[in-house]
Amino acid sequence: MTNFNETKNLLENSNFYYVIIAGMDSNYSYVNSHYASAFGYISENMVGKPYYITMHPDDRKVCEETSIKCFQNPDKSFPATIRKHDGKGGYIITQWEYRAIFNDQNEPDGVFCMGYDITEYVRANENLQVAKSEIEEKKTILEQIGWEQSHVIRRPVANIIGLVNILNKMDLDQNMSNICEMLTDSADQLDEAINTIVRKTE
């Protein structure tokens, strides 16, 4: 318990970490000032209150399962992600490390928990995943455009160029020759434009 007391004293006035201890009766036996301040709207004095009053009901099972692991493995810490009431009808997301506490007689005495708010990180990660998904969708669309430009649109352009070449070999008056030359230039420009688009989507 000595090490836990040292950690408690070190982080009593932390502006970042939450530190709590839940006794074997499932009630708070200690909360640091940061935790008390963050969730003071629920209770002015957390000590003696049930540990679950600050959390999403569905996350109680996470706490119970993690605590069991701690007592089964007393030399190890175990992580838990818990949603906590934000006082506005929603939840913040917190990340914790749990560790079993034993008294001088080596009997289970509670669970030591240290955590912090990861809400902004989680939201940023969610936004990143959405952005990645949108990028993948746009990439797929660009690839489809490139394929259509290369295979669907280029075919009639090639046909136009071929027909113009046939016309150029025919006996045409000057007016028709000028038109064929303009058609050739336009078809070549269109073909180059298609090639440029295809290269950009590769």
Rank of each mutant, 00 (worst) to 15 (best):
I53A: 08
K76N: 06
C70P: 03
N165E: 12
I42W: 07
E181A: 11
S33Q: 14
V157K: 05
N45V: 10
C113D: 05
I82W: 08
E148Q: 11
N175E: 15
I141R: 08
I68A: 13
I21C: 03
Y30C: 02
D59G: 02
S37N: 12
N178P: 04
Y35W: 13
L167S: 12
N168L: 14
E120T: 11
V47D: 03
N175G: 09
K84F: 07
A22W: 10
T66C: 04
E181F: 10
Q105A: 14
I145M: 15
G89M: 06
N13C: 04
Y35M: 10
V157W: 00
I145A: 13
N32V: 07
S43A: 15
I179T: 12
C113M: 14
N168K: 15
E136Y: 03
N125M: 14
I92Q: 09
I92E: 08
P74E: 00
K84S: 08
W147E: 12
V31H: 05
D58M: 13
M114Q: 08
E126T: 11
E97V: 00
Y98S: 06
N178G: 14
S150M: 08
M46W: 08
E97D: 10
D188Q: 15
G110V: 01
T201W: 03
Q189Y: 14
M170I: 07
Q174S: 14
M1C: 04
L128A: 15
I92V: 13
F39L: 11
S43N: 12
Y116A: 06
V157T: 08
N103C: 05
K84L: 09
G115C: 05
D185H: 13
E202F: 07
N195A: 13
E192V: 13
Y116S: 12
E97S: 11
V130G: 01
T81K: 14
G89I: 04
P74Y: 03
S26H: 11
S37W: 06
T201G: 02
M46R: 05
Q144S: 15
D171M: 10
D117K: 08
